[in-house]
Design a protein around this nucleic acid. Structure first.
Lengths: 276, 276
DNA sequence: CGCCGTCTTGACGAATCTCAAATAAAGTGG
DNA sequence: CCACTTTATTTGAGATTCGTCAAGACGGCG
């Protein structure tokens, strides 16, 4: 019998600490190829779609019990990632979507020349990997911001299941279309807002999403650095830092490191809408 | 028998010239409700998917002849729009995707407060309306930039057809996913590029798309105003104008009104990649 | 305790916006 | 088709926002 749990220290024996830039195998690689001991598979109290508290945010939402069961069986693996592990990288063959069960990650776009940009921050209940569907290969990189657990949803099997159960296909369409809408909103933000408005919008969006997951909508801990926020918002980290300080001074928020407390949400909203 | 073609001047009898801001019925409205004579339906030489030269860009791509036939029959109406007609608006119930057969249009995002942004320019072969799938209502506005002809693809029937023919569902997924990738590229542009790089990227993107449709990739006519370009790129129209002038002075392009000729494509590419 | 990554803050400069005015082009009604 | 109106475009000057560079503070970790 394999031990069910490996001590934290030994989780990634093949990954030297200094190797962050190396084109190392991604977790998903390891999963696909089964070329190494699957230390990351989650074997413990196997979760099920039917009892998952994130269900209503996820793909099997609204399925009849029988179909839900089938969906559950479809799930390839539950994977566990440690902070800064990479789930997939650009160019990697696309084979599955990933539902985040816990933890959070960022997705980063990389272009041939040096430019890169954080294209999203994702938390429990989000489904990522959709960037791979279009051409069969991922075009961005998903990196854990903290330890996390994801369900791998093999895409081919989702499409099979969609054949027999219209609802699955519909949910898939919804998922993709919602992603499109989300990105449009980001485009609108990047194209039409000043720096302070963008930051306010970012904070309020986070707040909304925490609320939707049952967490406090006014007090939370950022999982990202100032640099990553800036990248996402099209700003430099200094600008982000300055703006956070200013909002703090103005009594809009309380900032202490990465802990944020929203003090005047209405004013933040107004700032976005009216530009002050 | 109704006349097959109505003289240009009489196409929109119910639309007074001054009513541009009025919440007028959209073309799609008229189509859905059949509440007025369907002057815009295209009845003439009925086109078919099987013979459509835009097929390879469209949803029925790669279908077997029989299925292609079914897809063809699924098409609700071919609609004709005149310049500045609106195909759908924000809030309108989503019922169909639209494949552009000829002409071009822009999609505009509108937020409650005054902000708006051109979110895309679409030409023959593009499919628009995907913004409506997520919540069942459109969240942007599609407006014709010139006279155009579109095929309405009732979404419910696409989903039905996808049940029996996996390929249809797959094409649908591809379509949506590609839209996601496209928008990510735009986000990357808005978030990481300087004004001149954005404009260069815009021109080269247009060039690519014209090429893909068999038109000249080096000489074309913009269908949009400087203001609309600026809106799309997150810039002011003056900035766009100045940059076009500068690129002209620098011998990169030739500008005459909305006619653009690309003189030094490699340099434009380099400008994007290296920032000069 | 000292290192390293992260964050803050200031001073300065460049990119872009705003406002304004002149010109060019397109659309309209006779 | 013309005269007229409206809309689109160009260009300049000055203001603003944001980025760059640089120095120091903070905080976690070995």
């Amino acid at each position: 019998m394999m031990p069910r749990r490996v001590p934290l220290k030994n989780r990634m024996p093949a990954q030297p600490a200094a190797g962050r830039r190396r084109p190392a195998e991604t977790i998903a690689d390891a999963h696909q190829g089964a070329r190494r001991t699957r230390l990351h598979d989650v074997k413990d109290p196997q979760p099920h779609c039917a009892t998952c508290h994130l269900q209503r945010l996820c793909l099997p939402f609204g399925l009849e019990p029988g179909v839900m069961q089938m969906f559950d069986e479809l799930i390839g693996k539950r994977l566990r990632l440690k902070k800064s592990d990479t789930l997939y990288r650009p160019g990697e063959r696309f084979s599955a979507l990933y539902a985040i069960r816990s933890g959070s990650c960022k997705t980063v776009l990389l272009s041939e020349d040096g430019r890169d940009q954080v294209s999203g921050c994702h938390m429990a209940g989000d489904i990522i990997g959709t960037d791979g569907i279009g051409v069969g290969a991922h075009d961005c990189q998903a990196t854990a911001l903290e330890d996390m657990e994801v369900c791998a949803l093999p895409f081919a099997r989702i499409e099979e299941l969609a054949q027999d159960h219209a609802r699955v296909g519909q949910n898939m369409h919804r998922l993709l279309a919602r992603e499109i809408s989300r990105e449009r909103r980001v485009m609108l933000m990047l194209g039409t807002m000043r720096a302070d408005q963008r930051l306010a919008a970012f904070l309020l969006d986070l707040a909304d999403r925490y609320r939707a997951r049952g967490y406090s909508a006014t007090e939370f801990v950022l999982r990202v650095t100032r640099d990553e926020i800036g990248s996402y918002l099209g700003l430099k980290l200094e600008t982000v830092s300055r703006l956070l300080s200013r909002m703090h001074r103005d009594g809009l928020i309380l900032v202490q490191g990465r802990t944020i407390k929203l003090l005047d949400t209405p004013q933040l909203k107004r700032m976005i809408d009216t530009g002050q």
